[in-house]
Amino acid sequence: MRWTVHGERPVYENRWVNLWLANVETPDGTRFEHHVVRLRHLAVAAVVNDRREVLMMWRHRFITDTWAWELPMGLVEDGETPAEAAAREVLEETGWRPGPVRPLVYAEPAAGITDTQHHVFRADGATYEGPPTERNESDRVEWVPLAGVGAMIDRREIVSGATLVGLLRILADEAFR
């Protein structure tokens, strides 16, 4: 069943987040205003080395006041492809230059409220270039064994949706080889 959008109007807009109200009608004829959060698209990179380890960052998220492991990720900038953004973010946030990135999985994490797109890529291997240039991203960068990822998820050491989607896809691909 398809909803009809009769129009939209911005409530708040800036470079990071935009809040809109959409005038919608549900299939039963009910009409109301629905909040829509419009966000820039996200690029994520799962870099895996030949020892079956994935490059991850230990970081604090002030909004939830939590620490957890995450894959390198960031917003896709104007004029940049998601693949370019993923490779750039790995280098900036970790100091490692990833091998060629290829699409791993695409996700829309909360399509009922936001239009954000998450483009998750995989790179096999990376070359260390030096310390991260983004100094405010993480406390440490490490190669984490894929074999331990499930237990880390169970312990809530990995909670980021984009990170979970990427890692679970890698684990699923390996399980079905």
Rank of each mutant, 00 (worst) to 15 (best):
G148W: 10
T64C: 09
P145I: 09
P82D: 03
T133K: 07
M73N: 12
I153Y: 08
V76E: 02
P131S: 11
E137L: 12
P131D: 14
T64Y: 14
G161F: 13
A83L: 11
E134F: 13
P131E: 15
V141Q: 01
E84D: 04
V76H: 06
R135Y: 06
W69C: 03
W67Y: 15
G74D: 01
D124A: 14
S138V: 05
E92A: 11
Y106L: 15
R156C: 12
E137A: 15
R102H: 13
E142T: 08
W69R: 04
D124G: 09
S160R: 06
T64K: 13
H118I: 13
G148S: 11
G112H: 14
V76D: 06
L164R: 00
V105A: 14
W96R: 01
A87E: 10
R135L: 14
A126E: 04
W143G: 05
I153W: 05
Q117T: 06
E129W: 10
D139M: 13
E93S: 03
H119P: 09
L164S: 00
V90R: 07
R88P: 08
G125L: 10
E80A: 01
A68I: 02
T66K: 12
G112K: 00
A147S: 15
F121R: 06
W67L: 15
P131K: 07
N136F: 15
P145S: 06
P109K: 02
P82E: 10
I158A: 01
G125R: 10
S160F: 07
L71V: 07
